[in-house]
Design a protein around this nucleic acid. Structure first.
Lengths: 178, 178
DNA sequence: GTCTATATCAAGATAGAC
DNA sequence: GTCTATCTTGATATAGAC
């Protein structure tokens, strides 16, 4: 039976390639993630990659899937901590800061559910539902706030003198006060 | 003296081209906005475009600048209405819905301040400051919420049965209650 | 597992004629 | 203002040898 989670059953070499691709993505951004540059980084030629991966889309899907696994690990842990909301928002900021281009890849276009499997957006959003005690509207509002803060900061939309920490705190308190 | 706002002094033909580009962008998305397709849409050949525009970047800059002018018109008007907050958020949703790909072009990457002129991010954010009575942290939190809701909805990150209107209302009330 | 050679496509842009 | 012809670059991907 064929696996639905390719990267988990990928050959060691394929895993090396995916891992290298992740580094390339973070260092060069999405436009820098090309098969040629990836091969160069690995010290081989681009066509050799196709012996390990069917195409570039499979590579991107693997990266996105790994991203969501780490996302869910980090956020589920935060959402079930003693102070779920500050922990969740801190984890959210940290994730986007540490995996900047992966975060973009994961959020800036619709998910390919055919390849990623069903229900991934629900699973990604679940930590927010947990942290807000199961209120789905509030969970969505909180997630939107976190995503918006993240992206607007990343895209340098706030003035240089803006107190971004204060905006995070202000929004978080307003959204989750008792 | 050279103008700092090229599209305002552009020749009529250049304005036609920019206008056509805007239609192409909305119909085909950012990847569809190529010089070849733009020329095709205008019934001419691609090289002819370069008699009217220096390069593609100038075209994108013109589109973004026009977008911000309409953005500011719509949001400033809303921010000074009788019920500024619902009006502003409604205008925000309407703008993104009506100019979907232009909204993405305007928000999904850092602004080119060299070309757009200084202070554009402050001017774009100003309506939120007005609507929140001048509290900058709250204004940023509210903008982040609006942007996050917009993008997550656009990218189909909410489940099919999600009540997106309710999430907007919930977040707006939480952020701007007295 | 990697290589060379190559196919295919499409992008932005320029030169110079009309 | 538009054209044809062309340059340059760089992307994904395949075939088949080693």
């Amino acid at each position: 039976m064929a696996s639905r989670v390719p990267e988990l059953t990928a050959t060691p070499r394929a895993q090396e390639i995916i891992s290298s691709a992740r580094g390339l993505l973070e260092e060069e951004g999405y436009d820098g993630l090309t098969m040629r540059r990836l091969a160069e980084r690995l010290g081989i030629r681009a066509p050799s990659l196709y012996k390990h991966l069917p195409d570039k889309q499979a590579l991107e899907t693997a990266l996105i899937r790994i991203g969501f696994e780490e996302w869910m690990d980090a956020f589920e842990q935060a959402a079930t901590s003693e102070a779920p909301l500050p922990a969740l928002l801190a984890a959210y900021r940290a994730f986007a800061r540490d995996y900047l281009h992966l975060y973009r890849l994961m959020t800036e276009r619709p998910l390919d559910r055919e390849r990623l499997g069903p229900g991934i957006e629900e699973r990604a959003a679940a930590p927010f539902a947990t942290a807000t005690g199961g209120d789905p509207d509030l969970a969505r509002a909180l997630w939107a706030f976190a995503h918006g803060m993240t992206i607007l900061e990343l895209n340098e939309r706030f003035p240089n003198n803006a107190d971004i920490d204060a905006a995070w705190t202000r929004g978080a308190h307003a959204l989750v006060q008792p």
